[in-house]
């Protein structure tokens, strides 16, 4: 069982998003779970923002959960990047053992 690292950023405050990034080498690609009041109008853009941000950090396998509270694109990207960086910063010794 390969090990997962998790990073969380943001909040559930208005105009923000709470983003959890789980890096799992096991996974096929990146799965995004998105909950947002703007999903009908901006769902695709939001998913793209998450994907592009992860790509820029070279994250290829993982799971991202976004709980959006009306965040703008730049905020969602920022929260995703911070969550991913926090996950990447989890040192080897602290990885959760199965």
């Amino acid at each position: 069982m390969l090990l997962e690292r998790t990073g969380v950023a943001g909040s559930l405050e208005s105009c923000d998003a709470l983003v959890m990034v789980i890096l799992s080498p096991d996974r096929e690609g990146v799965e995004i779970e998105l909950e947002s009041p703007s999903i009908a109008s901006f769902g695709e853009e939001m998913k793209r923002a998450v994907m592009e941000t992860l790509e820029s950090l070279d994250v290829q396998h993982g799971y991202v959960k976004v709980q959006d509270r009306g965040s703008l694109d730049c905020t969602l990207r920022a929260r995703t990047e911070t969550a991913a960086r926090r996950a990447l910063a989890v040192p080897d010794g602290e990885k959760v053992e199965e």
Partner: peptide
């Protein structure tokens, strides 16, 4: 500090 840095950077870029 890390989160704010990225939020501000992105705001400078997009807002």
């Amino acid at each position: 500090k890390d989160a704010a840095r990225i939020l501000v950077r992105n705001a400078l870029k997009s807002v």
